[in-house]
Every structure is written in C-alpha cells, then in structure tokens.
Amino acid sequence: MTERPRPLMIGATAADPKRAVFIWNAIRKYFNEAGLETEYALYSTYDALGSAVLDGHVDIAWNAPMAHAQLLLRSPSACRTLAMRDTDEDVHSLIVARADAAIADLDDLRGRRLAMGVDISSELYLLPAAQLAEDGLDVESDCELVELEATEYYNLQRWVDDRTIFGAVLDGRADAGVIFEPWLGYLLRRHELAADDIVEVWRTRPYCHCAFTSGPSLSDDACEQFVELLVAMDPADPEIAEMMRMEHLSKWVRATDDGWSDIMGAVEQADLVGKIF
C-alpha cells in the first residue's frame, strides 16, 4: 500500500481564537480546493510555534516580525521568507507628540518622557531604540522612559500596545511615544483628532512586518507551489474577501528576507537570538 503524502501543515497563533478559526478555515479550504492538501494548527504563543517549525511539525508558519526574524537567525538559509500581506511592506514605527508639546526633533526629546512598548517588542521598542541610537539618541539615558500598564491578551502574554502609548501621550503622562504607523489613522479617528493635533517627530527606516516563514524541511518546489496559490487568491470571492478584511490586506505578495534585516540586527544587538519568539 502506497503511503499517502502528508498534507502541508501551516501554523499560526490564536491570539484572537474566534477570528483565527474563521481565517484559517477559509485559507485551508482555498488551498484544498486548489489541489494543495493543507491542514493548520493554532499555537498559544510564537515561542511554541517557532519550536514547532524548527522541530519539523509545522511546514510554514504565519509569524509576527520578531518570530520571523528569530527563525531566520536560528536557521539561516533553511528557514526562508515566502510571502506577506501587501500591508506588511515598507511600514514604519513613529515617534509622535502633541502639537503643543514643543517637540519637533530628536534634540527636543532629550530629558523628556518617552513612552515605548515592552523591551522585546520589535516595532515599539527594539527596532526604534536601535535606530535612534544610530541617530544619536539613547532612549534609556537621554530620555525618561514612562512605565505603562501592560494589557493581557488571550494567550496570557502582556504587552504595552499602541493604544496605551498614544493615550499616555494625549493625557500628558508622556511627552512623546512610539507607535506603529498603520495605527495612527485609527487612533486619530478614535480620539476625534485632526492630523495637525499630533506631530511626527521621527520615523524608522521602512521595514516589513508579518510574514509566512518556511520550515527547514520544506522543498523549494513545495514553497513555490504554496506562494503561487497564495498570491493568486481572488478578493472577489466572498469568503476570501472576508478573510482578507479580517487579516487587514487586499492581496498577498511575494517577499524575501531583505525586509527583516533591520529587525534581525536589533534582535542580535539586544542579545535575544533564540531566547524569545
């Protein structure tokens, strides 16, 4: 009896379980109907997912930038960047301040209160801190870092998010704060602010955010088949359109490792390689 080939296993986290099940059911159905037998597994944390990739239990993982960078660093050339959302390409982290805070550039931040994410947050701490140091500002010695209460998520991890940081800037607990640029429009609308109520003090170089990461055992042919089908998803299909809406994208695009080089460098600089996904 011929052994049946194992389905392609995609892994992701279940930070929002209800949305995650809908999203991955739609993706699994799409691939199966396109002729690529696919299953998915949801993990509680990126640490668990990253270990599953390295151990060969997961062929392709949908990863946050830190987890993706860690896999590229832990298994160079074996783990590869396959694809991302169009909204993950060329994003920035920003330092923002109230227009009345008299902060126009980095020199104005010296001695001021700065709100950032937790020290393992790629876009709200690690990457901005590394690039600010390149520009001559050491956030720990040149600024007063504001301690903010972290939010606990479904997976029991605690993060200081963009909403918390932006709120601290607005209510005066912080003079300025680091946020992920795609959140800015939403935060302005939520607080009924005009664009000129907030000033952009500084921004990182462009980088890429979430990505599909291939595991070490996946062949080039299997990777290419997955990517070809992924980028061919038709947003006119109602089920695909709803999945894309929930995942905040209008199309999937091919990607290479290049967009994560700055994050990888920040992870190495912070001596975090292999310590946390």
Rank of each mutant, 00 (worst) to 15 (best):
V58S: 07
D59N: 11
I60Y: 02
P65D: 08
M66D: 09
A67M: 05
H68W: 04
H68E: 04
H68M: 09
A69E: 02
Q70K: 06
L73P: 00
L73V: 04
R74H: 03
S75Y: 04
P76G: 07
R80C: 12
T81W: 01
L82M: 11
L82W: 05
T87I: 09
D88Q: 13
D88A: 15
E89I: 15
E89W: 14
V91L: 14
H92W: 11
S93E: 06
L94M: 09
I95Q: 03
R98S: 12
A102H: 15
A104G: 13
L106F: 03
L106R: 02
D107I: 01
D107T: 12
L109C: 08
G111V: 13
R113N: 09
L114C: 07
M116K: 00
G117I: 06
V118D: 13
S121K: 04
E123P: 00
L126Y: 05
Q131H: 06
L132S: 02
A133V: 02
A133G: 06
A133E: 14
A133R: 12
D135M: 10
D138R: 06
E140I: 03
D142C: 05
D142I: 08
D142G: 06
C143W: 07
E144G: 00
E144Y: 02
V146E: 07
V146F: 05
V146D: 10
E147Y: 03
E147Q: 09
L148D: 13
T151K: 15
Q157M: 15
R158G: 06
V160R: 13
D161Q: 13
D162N: 15
I165L: 13
I165H: 00
F166C: 10
G167S: 14
A168V: 07
V169A: 06
L170C: 04
D171T: 02
D171W: 03
R173F: 05
A174P: 07
D175V: 05
I179S: 13
F180C: 07
W183D: 14
W183H: 13
L187P: 14
L187S: 11
